[in-house]
Amino acid sequence: MITKRHRKTIRITLTYIICVLAFIFFIMPLLWITYSSFRSPSAILSGTIISPAGQYTLDNYRTILSVTDFPVYFWNSLRIGFMVTFAAMVLSIIGAYGLSRYSLKGKNAYIMGVFSTQMFPIVLLLIPIYNIIFTMGLFNTALGVVLGQLMLVLPFAVWMLKGYFDNLPKEIEDSARIDGCNLFQMLFRIVLPISAPGIMVAAFYSFVVSWGDYLVVSVISQSQKTATLTLALQRLSSSLLLRWGQVAAATVLTIVPTILLFSFVQTRLVEGLTAGSVKA
């Protein structure tokens, strides 16, 4: 007979085993990259884990930060990422809510229409995307990049939020409607708080897709005004004098802000809001 206490011990042990395994698989390679970013070229190529004290260096970071316009690209990535996230959330929340709660003739056709870009190889769409953005006069502008990336983000964001809204109980909304709430009051007061975890995942997804996008940026951007971090990374990694240490340093600089952002989102918003709404 397994008692409740045993069960708790098993649960905690299993959790830690899974976490340790996940840590080894997902995080260790990144720690190795981080570690490599502080090593000199000869230390990296030595094939040993520990190298003499003199072979650790900050040069990789110094080079990246001083000569590659890294801060400029970083800022571009950040603001474009935020713009994409914001626009994607506004559009997909109302769109998904509409699809979930209201009827629409030929709904499936619309959903498929939204998804069709994801079904065609994106490398074949580069020239048309360029043509459209150029015709709109948005070539080499942040807005152009944002529009291009929205195309990548929206299908999933809409689809995911629709799935999330479908799962929510409709009773609260019905009573709110009787109380005389209009659509936007209802969205803001009732739907958003309940679905915060889902919205956060969708928002984070949007941000990460924008942050990691190379293809759209490479087509639309052509100056420091709009070039993002992935472009900078791409440059470093295609150099004839490829220096692993610098690539590692650049990778670390790309990851750290997103992890900080995510941990903020995770602890402050998701848990707080869910806790609040479930109790209510």
């Binding site: 935020f82 713009m83 914001f86 626009a87 948005l138 080499n140 942040a142 807005l143 944002v146 005004k225």
Partner: peptide
């Protein structure tokens, strides 16, 4: 941020 950026972007385009 988005609003200011798009105004800015529109101008520079």
């Amino acid at each position: 941020m988005f609003a200011t950026q798009s105004i800015f972007a529109g101008g520079s385009s």
